[in-house]
Nucleic acid binder design. Structure first.
Length: 518
RNA sequence: GGUCGGUUCGUAUAACGGUUAGUACUCAAGAUUCUCAAUCUUGCAAUAGGGGUUCGAUUCCCCUACCGACUACCA
């Protein structure tokens, strides 16, 4: 009975999707596609308190930008599917819309003796917790304490049945078995054992809002949606025994999915996991897309920072996974081919911004001049630069493509090919702008202006150097001085390239301007 | 505190009992060039510590240290 591979990414719409979340989604996607299976998106919005408007849309848009397109859960226009259909037999995909289906499963567990009703209020539990903490102990609602608390296990039947009717703030808790060793297998971590004596009786369902907690909703939906593998973050490993026990209590062990727990993304320096603050502090995005929260606080995104989605996906894939050889550059399709959970690294991966930039640079180099020009034209426009043909911009892009990491770098690298420099880099000027140099440089300028052939790099370069050499002038000093006049700095393209691009008239103008300042 | 997970150059990782412990990023030096960038070459740099097991441990086991996750009517 080979089942079709079906995996899901189940984010909670409590804010923008963190890059670690994107990585989890990516690994799920790669795993599914490699096996010809389905990748499903399910929105886990059972906590109405933490719901953030726009978060769901953000998550889907972010995945879409990355090329991670779901087979189920979202329709063609990127909306979460709300009604079941032939293509979406498991809809709806928002847990808030699946509300009616969970209670019966929770009750089923109570009937089977795997769960019970609990009537302790949040305040009572809070007080209990504080009391025990004051005594230096930790309170857990579990096998050692449950009989001393208010629930259907400790109270007379008549009493709790009455409370069940009259009160609306009770919960259903899982009755954690005592002293049992739960043996689990993780696709990444291998065999893990936990004794149930350290585990507590988790709340599964709440009467107050008639909603399940994560644990119940997760198991029920994974079962109903016929999920075959659960690939999720490491933070879920501690609740894996509970999940195993739930599958067992429901009698679903035959079709229980296999689990794989991914390690976390760590901050580049210091201790702890990667957080929003690190991005602000160290100057790189931690989110795929820009996000503005309710307070108007802006978090930058990879997309807005100029990363190509292919580069972002590639760098994410390499953070905690490797193909087993030296290949580092992969397209999404290549990743689908090469990916394997066996090669996912167990330890947490520190994010490195330099490496992230390197990936983008590699992708930028691979782009066609046409595509980069498409991206650069609007930038030029925003700089107020007009009157240049597309052909001209393409020539510029061709010359600077391999010098840039982002399209946004183009302007900093070669704005002088569009506008005359307004300022001069002080350090460079101090070094090269000396009378002995610029008198010669101006003579070279005259030579260029007197050049009668067509202005091309090939035509100019030879004669230019020949002219300087024959006069026995210092090539470096003269050229840099001339570059200073054209660029405003002693760095940049070759003189012949610059002159060819800006043309004789503009060249003459810049030289005249320089002469006027002497 | 408890439970679980993790630990190879600064970072990401390779080596799934036998290698001069490899690769990439970063950094440094050199080559090249009219400068810068790019490119090429070279270099710096690691098995957390201690016990075992073994002819032999980065690799297997134990202890310690450190890091992390979890410990909610949040996911």
């Amino acid at each position: 009975m080979e089942r079709k591979t079906r995996v899901r990414f189940a984010p909670s719409p409590t804010g923008p999707l963190h890059m670690g979340g994107v990585r989890t989604a990516l690994y799920n996607y790669l795993f599914a596609k490699q096996r010809g299976g389905d990748f499903i998106i399910r929105i886990e919005d059972t906590d109405s308190q933490r719901f953030v408007p726009g978060a769901e849309k953000y998550i889907i848009e972010a995945l879409n930008w990355c090329g991670i397109v779901p087979d189920e859960g979202v329709d063609a226009s990127g909306n979460v599917v709300e009604t079941a259909s032939e293509r979406h037999p498991h809809a709806p995909y928002r847990q808030s819309q699946r509300k009616p289906i969970y209670r019966q499963y929770a009750e089923q567990l109570v009937e089977g003796g795997f769960a019970y009703y609990a009537f302790d209020t949040a305040e009572e539990l809070g007080a209990k917790r504080a009391e025990m903490e004051a005594a230096g102990e930790t309170f857990i609602y579990g096998q050692t304490t449950r009989m001393g608390l208010r629930n259907s296990l400790s109270m007379p039947e008549a009493e709790w049945k009455e409370l069940l009717e009259t009160r609306t703030d009770w919960t259903i808790r899982f009755k954690m078995p005592e002293n049992r060793v739960v043996e689990m297998d993780d696709l990444i971590r291998g065999h893990v054992e936990v004794n149930t004596s350290t585990l507590d009786d988790k709340v599964l369902w709440k009467r107050a809002d008639e909603l399940p907690t994560y644990h119940l909703a997760n198991i029920v939906d994974d079962h109903l949606m016929e999920i075959t593998e659960v690939i999720r973050g490491e933070e879920w490993l501690p609740s894996l025994p509970l999940h195993y026990l739930l599958y067992e209590a429901f009698g679903w062990t035959e079709t229980q999915p296999r689990f794989a727990h991914l390690s976390l993304l760590l901050k580049p320096d210091g201790k702890g996991k990667l957080s929003k603050r690190d991005g602000d502090r160290l100057g790189f995005p931690v989110f795929p897309l820009k996000w503005v929260n309710a307070e108007g606080e802006v978090s930058r995104g990879y997309r807005e920072d100029g990363y190509f989605p292919e580069a972002f996906v590639n760098l994410l894939a390499m953070l905690g996974w490797n193909p087993g050889n030296d290949q580092e550059l992969f397209t999404l399709d290549e990743l689908v081919q090469a990916f394997s959970l066996e090669r996912v690294v167990k330890s947490g991966a520190r994010f490195n911004a330099d490496k992230a930039k390197w990936f983008n640079k590699e992708y930028l180099r691979k782009k066609s001049v046409a595509e980069l020009t498409d991206l650069y034209m609007p930038v030029l426009e925003s700089k107020g630069v007009t009157g240049f043909s597309r052909e001209y911009v393409e020539k510029v892009v061709t010359l600077i493509q391999e010098r840039a990491t982002f399209v946004a770098d183009f302007w900093d690298i070669a704005s002088y090919l569009f506008v005359a420099p307004k300022t001069f880099v002080e350090k460079d000027a101090a070094k090269f702008w000396k009378e002995e140099n610029y008198t010669l440089a101006l003579k070279v300028a005259d030579f260029i202006l007197a050049f009668e052939g067509e202005f091309t790099k090939e035509n100019l370069e030879g004669p230019l150097e020949e002219y300087i050499r024959s006069n026995e002038w210092p090539m470096g000093k003269v050229m840099n001085c001339l570059r200073l006049a054209l660029v405003g700095a002693s760095s940049g393209l070759g003189i012949a390239d610059i002159v060819t691009l800006i043309g004789k008239d503009e060249f003459a103008r810049r030289i005249e301007y320089i002469k006027a300042t002497l």
